[in-house]
Design a protein around this nucleic acid. Sequence first.
DNA 1: CTCCCAGATCGTAATTATTCCGATGTAATT
DNA 2: AATTACATCGGAATAATTACGATCTGGGAG
Lengths: 143, 143
Amino acid sequence: MTLNETLSRLKGQGVKITPQRLEILKVLLDEERYYSAEEILKKVQESYPAISYDTVYRTLYLFKKLGLVLELNFQGGYRRFEFNRQDRHHHHLVCLKCGCSQKLSCCPTDCLTRIKEEHPEFAITSHSFEIYGYCEVCRKVKS
Amino acid sequence: MTLNETLSRLKGQGVKITPQRLEILKVLLDEERYYSAEEILKKVQESYPAISYDTVYRTLYLFKKLGLVLELNFQGGYRRFEFNRQDRHHHHLVCLKCGCSQKLSCCPTDCLTRIKEEHPEFAITSHSFEIYGYCEVCRKVKS
DNA sequence: CTCCCAGATCGTAATTATTCCGATGTAATT
DNA sequence: AATTACATCGGAATAATTACGATCTGGGAG
Ligand SMILES: [Mn+2]
Ligand SMILES: [Mn+2]
Ligand SMILES: [Zn+2]
Ligand SMILES: [Zn+2]
């Protein structure tokens, strides 16, 4: 998903491209990682100092509804957002101390198919799978 | 895990058993499901009208640290707590509309072992695996 | 059984994250 | 250029969680 591909997809869906939305998209696409709402606000403020949290959240939820963005809810209540690179579905290894993360290659597809079979009445839309613990650095520092 | 087993375990660990803690334990053990902090507060208030949120949260986090309670962070930012029945590790099928849930029998153990092998430097402490969608009732109502 | 005190609770205030709202601005269509 | 539906802004409101000083108490020592 490049920026231009995404923009034309949005136009096709009749979604207005405002400068703020464009900037939020750029932030999300810049690095392949997740962001907190605050991080996104701070980054966009560099170009649009007046942008409000309202706009950030509204845009993120709009993008989420359009399938462009994923919302991640981590242990401890941390909410994060990341661009949904369709071709690269993945899960995370999350450090409970420093918050750093690694992408995982593994997705429990066999469990998912079994659950679909066992609960055909339930309309599954998404799943989460996260591994928590302490990264190499933090496990040494302990505390 | 019965109430008495849990209590003697707590005593063994030198944890004070206060009436409020006992009552919170009873609520958690009463039904095999998860609770919001507010639900627990309301239930305990029936016996201890003066109990504060502070006590509820402190107790839940204490129990979590002792391994008695699990903290669940669901899509949408809902935080829930449930008694950790050691023998019955499980995951959840969660309805995004009404919030109802079903226990799942399936746990992605093969993924977990693979991840442990691939990231030996990371000290894994826990994992989450939740399935989201719409239950039979809500998928019909749509909206 | 009573005394004692580390630690638990209460009441309330502070903090944090998120959502709401009225006024104003603007992208895209006519 | 005018129109309008929708976006944004600034700031206030709400909700969830945490902090803190004053007070209380579970349970061990004597
Ligand atoms: Mn990711
Ligand atoms: Mn459960
Ligand atoms: Zn997956
Ligand atoms: Zn599991």
